[in-house]
């Protein structure tokens, strides 16, 4: 387990380096005028020319890449072209907010995915005359998959924030509450300060976007778990466990689920990466000030300094999450195809 995790994290380093190359190509090679993107709108020709030199756009592409990578790695991220604020500060406040949201959404996604998968499997196992019900449940997950997180977010906000206001949206904290000092992870900071009012309010602001994301991305996990359980039950070791006198529950929880959970966990890891993308939209709908909203604003304003750092931050989170999940899965069951 430790070895596979360590190996997978080691592999994540070159992957991230290659990802920076992708980012560089997408943002610095493809666009028509990079220098204009790096400046506030309405910059003069002379300013743009000066920016060309600063960005090293007159050099060879590989040289440009090395210079740019150096800047990214050393934290010289510059000022936002749009707001004139250091990019580091913008990302520094938005990233913890998004991580909190993504983590909570991942938990919701996992809980929904695993319970849904067990339900799917239970319906399928009853078999016989109730086969229609399993097919119906299967189709239900397909239909659920067809509801994008955007629609879930709109629906939830409409019902639970506007129609019947039980959960707040907009910001991370109710107005009037004091921001506890600390890391920027509001839930952790509130707990550390022992401020339950802040904790409750922060959690309340997270509920709707997290549930929207969870609902939007859980169905594939359900289906993978359902299918993996069905596959496990076809294997002779389940039969042999029954023949040793284990009860149905012991076989499910002790034998089949630990094995079937591995591909489901891998699916959850992949869904988590996708969910990070969904964050961008759901944050916009719920008015949650996270990295996704920052990225959307930056795209809208063609704000290159923010774009590249926000994009890179997403990549780092995604690659690390994926590496951890894969490492754990490989450690749990070396031969199971995840």
């Amino acid at each position: 387990m430790i070895a596979s995790l360590g190996w997978r994290l080691l592999v994540a380093v070159p992957v991230l380096l290659l990802a920076t190359l992708v980012l560089f190509v997408v943002l610095r090679v493809l666009p028509a005028d990079v220098a204009a993107m790096a400046l506030a709108p309405g910059a003069t020709e002379a300013e743009i020319a000066a920016m060309r030199v600063v960005l090293g756009l007159d050099g060879l592409l590989p040289v440009q890449y090395v210079i740019w990578l150096g800047q990214m790695l050393s934290g010289e991220w510059g000022l936002s072209a749009q707001m004139g604020v250091p990019v580091a500060r913008l990302v520094g406040t938005a990233l913890p907010a998004t991580l909190e949201l993504a983590a909570l959404a991942g938990v919701v996604c996992g809980v929904l995915g695993f319970s849904g998968g067990l339900l799917l499997f239970a319906l399928r196992r009853e078999g016989g005359q109730r086969e229609g019900r399993a097919a119906l449940a299967e189709t239900g997950t397909t239909l659920m998959m067809a509801v994008p997180a955007l629609l879930w977010a709109l629906l939830l906000v409409l019902v639970f924030a506007l129609g019947w206001p039980v959960a707040p949206v907009g910001g991370r904290l109710a107005p009037g509450l004091a921001w506890p000092p600390g890391t920027g992870f509001l839930l952790l900071d509130a707990l550390a300060a022992g401020d339950l009012a802040v904790f409750g309010s922060a959690l309340g602001h997270l509920v709707l976007p997290a549930v929207a994301l969870g609902l939007g991305f859980a169905p594939p996990v359900m289906r993978v778990l359902g299918a993996a359980l069905a596959e496990a039950y076809r294997a002779p070791f389940i039969d042999q466990a029954r023949l040793r006198g284990l009860s149905g529950a012991q076989v499910l929880w002790g034998q089949a689920l630990p094995l079937a959970a591995v591909p489901a966990l891998a699916a959850l890891g992949r869904q988590f990466v996708l969910l990070l993308g969904g964050v961008a939209v759901v944050e916009a709908v719920c008015g949650y000030p996270g990295l996704g909203r920052l990225l959307v604003e930056a795209v809208r304003a063609a704000d290159l300094p923010v774009l590249q750092v926000a994009g890179l931050a997403f990549a780092v989170v995604a690659v690390l999450a994926q590496a951890v999940v894969e490492g754990v899965c490989r450690g749990l069951a070396p031969r199971v195809r995840a």
């Binding site: 002779p236 070791f237 466990a241 094995l259 591995v262 070396p334 031969r335 199971v336």
Partner: peptide, 9 residues
């Protein structure tokens, strides 16, 4: 099939 009759993980 003894190999398949033991829990693989």
């Amino acid at each position: 099939s003894p190999l398949a009759a033991l829990h693989p993980a």
